[in-house]
Design a protein around this nucleic acid. Structure first.
Lengths: 198, 198
DNA sequence: CGGATTGGCTAACACTGTTAGCCTCATTTC
DNA sequence: GAAATGAGGCTAACAGTGTTAGCCAATCCG
């Protein structure tokens, strides 16, 4: 009974297809893997071309034999991260029922961001170069919010609210001493009752 | 009238005092003013020490006779911006009544961020150096959300949701063709009915 | 008058992403 | 087998960043 879809009964079924990323060459795959490790373990400031070269045993300029530049490397990381988070959230929605789907989704979103804070920041901060992203990857990552709400703009608002709540948490922007579980509970409650205005 | 506070009737009265920023020396005030202009009109990437010096008629190293560094300059900008947005939002709440306060607050927050996107990003992105900020400035800027909701954690969730919704708008992260007025309407609606769970 | 302080300057350092040009080695092609 | 080609490394260098050190003129104050 994974995904019931009774009249008005969420969660909805999947619609967006899971995107397939263009498989990188072995060396490029290696570079991306190292880049992700550096980003996650050492932070965004450590993600430099020279640091990557160091870990790969080559000099920074040699990286340009494989990649057009640092921004392209970042796009690859974002691409993969969006597919991953989409997989995670779709799985959560698959396993949830109407009563708990919204809370489960928000909890999973928060947990994922806290487990990969630097990757999360890379994915969500700054303007997005859509043309460089693999097609459909944003739809894939965002659809779980639609499946959980049943209305596109409510889904967008929920995603945005979740993002705001978690990015402020990652950056330590709440007043010291705040019990963030209660903040998340308040957010969940706000979106948990039927909303007419759309 | 201005701020009724009947039992359960929002908006609440002000509590946090309006912070007073330490007045900078004339030259420092000039630097801050130029910095803000560069940031707002030319973007964060143009906010460099050399660019500031250029506009002030001096060389970059001379700026260090007045400021400890770029990050301190940024803190000054954030300080002033937080007081400003606090003034704005408190004024909105002052003028609103219980029925419309939430919508008015969110609309004002959104409008202000869109009018000063680069300043908004500076204020809200990255970790905050609380020790450098003027005391009480965060409380001042955040209190309108408490006045509009009457519950601290709901206020935090509302602020976080507003931030998420507007920062994604500024960075153009919504799917192309989205009617963001509807997204904001959905957000407003979600927070507009009484919430028990806290 | 004589220090002391203020506020400018140049030179330089360490770091960033990135380009140009060279060279070696493996592979493919005649 | 020889020759050409391309992949993938290298060093040197450039323009840009924040920042420090050290020098120097002017101004202020006792």
């Amino acid at each position: 009974m994974g995904t019931p879809q009774g009249p008005g009964g969420l969660p909805l079924a999947r619609v967006a297809p899971r995107p397939v990323l263009a498989p990188p060459s072995p060396r490029v795959g290696e570079i991306i893997a190292v880049a992700r490790e550096v980003l996650e373990k050492e932070g965004a400031a450590a993600l430099t071309m020279r640091r990557l070269g160091e870990l790969l045993g080559i000099r920074a300029p040699s990286l340009y034999k494989h990649l057009a530049g640092k921004s392209q490397l970042e796009v690859r990381l974002v691409d993969a991260a969006l597919v991953e988070v989409g997989d995670l959230l779709h799985g959560v929605v698959d396993r949830a029922d109407a009563a708990s789907v919204l809370g489960d989704l928000l909890a999973a979103y928060r947990a994922h961001a806290r487990a990969h804070p630097n990757l999360y920041r890379l994915v969500t901060s700054g303007p997005m170069r859509r043309d460089q992203l693999t097609a459909g990857v944003e739809d894939w990552a965002g659809e779980p919010f639609y499946r959980a709400t049943g209305e596109p703009y409510l889904a967008q608002a929920l995603w945005a609210a979740a993002h705001g709540t978690v990015i402020l948490e990652l950056d330590g922007r709440y007043l010291p001493g705040s019990d963030l579980d209660r903040t998340w509970a308040a957010l969940t409650a706000a979106f948990s009752r039927p909303v007419d205005g759309a």
